[in-house]
Design a protein around this nucleic acid. Sequence first.
DNA 1: CCCATGTCCTGGTCGC
DNA 2: TGCGACCAGGACATGG
Length: 271
Amino acid sequence: MPELPEVEVCRLGISPHIIDVEVSDVIVRKAQLRWPIPEAVQQLTKQTVLAVDRRAKYLLIRFSAGTLLLHLGMSGTIRVIDQSTPVAKHDHFDLVFKNGKVLRLNDPRRFGAVLWFEQHKDEQGVLSKLGPEPLSEEFCHGYLFSKAKNRKLAVKTFLMNNQIVVGVGNIYANEALFQAGILPTAVTGDISAKRFDKLTDIIKQILSAAIEQGGTTLKDFTQADGRPGYFAQSLLVYGRAGDACFVCGEILKEVRQASRSSVYCLTCQQA
DNA sequence: CCCATGTCCTGGTCGC
DNA sequence: TGCGACCAGGACATGG
């Protein structure tokens, strides 16, 4: 379940187990993910993890020779488990470590990715065109408005564009627009700077809160069922079409935009 | 049959 | 008309 907060929680969860630890084996069971897993990942054997970073929804495992990039797609999960853990269906990739731990990628739909970039070579393919991190200072008041000028698309589609800002997926786009009082169908170029600034603040709040809530399940992250379960309880509109708005009691409506469902309240949100 | 947390690619439209 | 920027929708594979 990879939204940005969950990828961040994943990063925090796996880091202490693998930083400064040497890889003893690389196992590819199914190379055919979104892109084929490159042969070059085999060279990771005997290399040591220097750091685990995140950019957008990509996990970046740093080695002296380069970077292993992992993406969870729609259905991927990464766990750090003991070497004795039996292999399950859709367990496509393992990094086996000298300390007996295994970083294991499971991804039923295989929209995820495992890629390798040599040091000082570009990560350009996937990372070069990404907009700012939503929790960074670069994503600040005035930013969304400046990007929105003269554009006519629906604001929800705009928010989910990685070139504008990364990490805001369908769930958080719905939630942020609800809390900011902006209809998902509102035309991007028609929204005032003030309303975009409020939306910016809310995106930061929601993502930060979700990371914190994910943090509470961090302790048992390495256990079999250690998935963060923070969102279901906090969601105000996502998945609730036809139910009553928690704020005003109005029945929540649903519309499809760019093939994704948007849920909204006609009373609490305006064009 | 419907739906699904992400992203890339295609083909169509718009404006200069 | 040409061209590039922009935008909506389809595609991927599997499961509930």
